[in-house]
Every structure is written in structure tokens, then in C-alpha cells.
Amino acid sequence: MSMPPTSTPPTSMPRMSPHPAPALGVVGLSSGYAGAVVVREVNLAIGAGEILAVLGKNGMGKSTLLKAVMGFLPKMAGSVTIAGTEATRLSPHRVARLGVGYVAQEKALFQDLTVEENLKLAVRGRDFAAALAEVEASFPFLLQRLRQRAGTLSGGEQKMLLMARSLATGARLLLVDEITEGLQPSVIDRLAGVIRSARERHGTTMLLVEQHLPFALAVADRWAVLDRGEIAEAGASIETGARERVLKHLSV
């Protein structure tokens, strides 16, 4: 959806945004489980190449938001567009094929498959060698471990494989659910570096659900706090006082 700089939006459509469609547009989205509304009327617009961190305590609807966008959970209200394509009613595999990489918080790897098979499953419509080159650029150690079962990797290595897998697909939009959970500081730093570099090289858009505040503010351009399913506060990461504003929602 790139727009040539010379073209101006027609003035006959005044309500139309002058910008290209956001990489992810969420309007009035409500979702949840069996009658329980967990996410209420959430609005989000993430521009191409932008990184947004969604923060909040457990049980506030962060994971539910991602699952609803992916189509794993029914949308009770609202709509989702991905790079301008209507994706509200699509099933998860169709959403994924729009160039969306989803990294779930739990059980996101096939433990009994090898590293290589885990990568292959995610990569479609793209040369596998190119995908491996991408893995090499981010986590070269994985290339030596291609034949190893993913379940035998350490916790940190599994998270790195997850990140590598979603980058290897060439996805335009990544939805990442608490990749930092339970990780050593060194691994977190490494993930942060890879995320920033991937954005620089490919302009990948990302929505990171996080509880790790320093990581989130270091990596993301903008942040939003989800409280009981609603966006309670939002801002830019570089603003002064961002940390305190978020912490107010996170801690006791």
C-alpha cells in the first residue's frame, strides 16, 4: 500500500485519511470467551514499520486482543484490517497468509519437530534459503541446531527460535505475546537488538504484548496500557515520564 509522493488524496473524500492504510487497524474491537467480554471496544492503528508495545497486568486482555486479531477468538464487535485488507471474519490461516506472524505466549513451538521443520512450517511462498539467511542474520547459532528437536532447546533458545521463525517468514506484521517471559537479561537484550534491526532492515511492523517494561520502552515507538480490556493510557516511548505512567498501571 505504498503511495507515490506526488499523488494527493482526492478532496472529494474528505473523511478519508491522507495516509496509507495502517499496517494494523483495529476499530471498536470487543472479544472474549463464552459470554465473558475480556477486550472492550479497543481502537488501535499501527503505521507501517511502527512498533507498539501493549502493556498491562495479567488478565487485562492483552493475549485476548492478539487472539481476536488472529481470528482464534470470535469478534463480538468491531473490525480488523491488515494493511487495508478487511480481516475481521478471516480464519487464522488466512490472517497468517496476509503476512501476519503470530507468536503465542505458550505452546508456540512444535516441541517434537526439529528446528528446521519448525522453520519450514512457517515459511511459505518464499525460498527456504532466503529464510535461512534471515535466521543467520538474527540468530546464527540456530543454523548449527537445525536437526535438533525444538523441545530440547533451552527456554531462552526456544524464544530465540520463535523470533527467528516469525522473521524468517518475511511477515509484514508481527504479533508477539510476551516473548520476554522468564528470560535472562542477556537473552532479552539480544531479542531487543534483533527486533530493532529487523525493523530497520525490513520495516516490519510489530505489536508486542509485554510485561517487561524496560524492554518494551526500549524497543517500541509507542506504548498503550490495557486495563480490564480497555486502553487506559497511551503515549510515545521517548516522552519523559513514560516509565512512571506505565508503572502506575503495572505495580501494586
Binding site: 487464522p92 490461516h93 497468517a96 519437530l113 512450517l121 512457517a122 511459505r124
Partner: peptide
Amino acid sequence: MNEDLARGLGI
């Protein structure tokens, strides 16, 4: 092994 995970990867 895990149908939901597979769907999330575009299968």
C-alpha cells in the same frame, strides 16, 4: 501436534 499453532502459521 497442535492444530491452533499450525493455523496461526498459515496452515
